[in-house]
C-alpha cells in the first residue's frame, strides 16, 4: 500500500528523536532502522533527513560528533540532548492524544468508549 507522504511530514522529527533515544546513530543507519522498525512502511529520503537533522542540531535537540569507522571513513553520529529528550516526551504525549482523537473519529466516536 502506498502511503500519503503528508501523513508522515509532521511527525518525522519525532520519529528521528525516538530512534536516537537510547542509541547514537548516523544518517544512513537512521533510514535503515526507521524502515526496519516500521515494517518497511517509512522510507525516509536522505535529502529530507539531513536538513532535518541539521535543524534539530541547531535547535540543540540533538548533538553530533565524528567517529572513525573500521573502513577509515569518518561518520557523523547524532545523539539526543536532555532538551531533545524532553521535547520527545512532549511530542509523544501530543501524538498519543492526537492519534487517539483521530482513531475515535474514524470509528464514529465509539472506538474507545465503554458501552
Amino acid at each position: 500500500m502506498t502511503m500519503d507522504k503528508t501523513l508522515l511530514a509532521g511527525s518525522t522529527a519525532m520519529l528521528i528523536l525516538k530512534l536516537l533515544d537510547g542509541q547514537d546513530m548516523y544518517g544512513y543507519q537512521m533510514i535503515a532502522e526507521l524502515a526496519k522498525r516500521s515494517d518497511d512502511t517509512f522510507h525516509l529520503k536522505a535529502g529530507t533527513l539531513y536538513p532535518l537533522l541539521h535543524g534539530l542540531e541547531k535547535k540543540k535537540l540533538l548533538e553530533s560528533y565524528e567517529k572513525q569507522t573500521d573502513s577509515a571513513r569518518i561518520r557523523k553520529y547524532y545523539r539526543l540532548t536532555p532538551k531533545g529528550k524532553k521535547h520527545l516526551h512532549e511530542k509523544t504525549e501530543e501524538w498519543e492524544v492526537f492519534s487517539h482523537a483521530i482513531h475515535q473519529v474514524l470509528k464514529g466516536g465509539l472506538c474507545c468508549e465503554h458501552i
Binding site: 536522505a46 535529502g47 536538513p51 541539521h54 535543524g55
Partner: peptide
C-alpha cells in the same frame, strides 16, 4: 535517486547553515 534533488536538498540545508 534516494538522496533526492540536489538543489532542493541544498536549499533546505541553506536554511540551517
Amino acid at each position: 535517486l534516494q538522496m533526492g534533488d540536489a538543489v532542493s536538498v541544498g536549499m533546505a540545508l541553506d536554511q540551517t547553515h
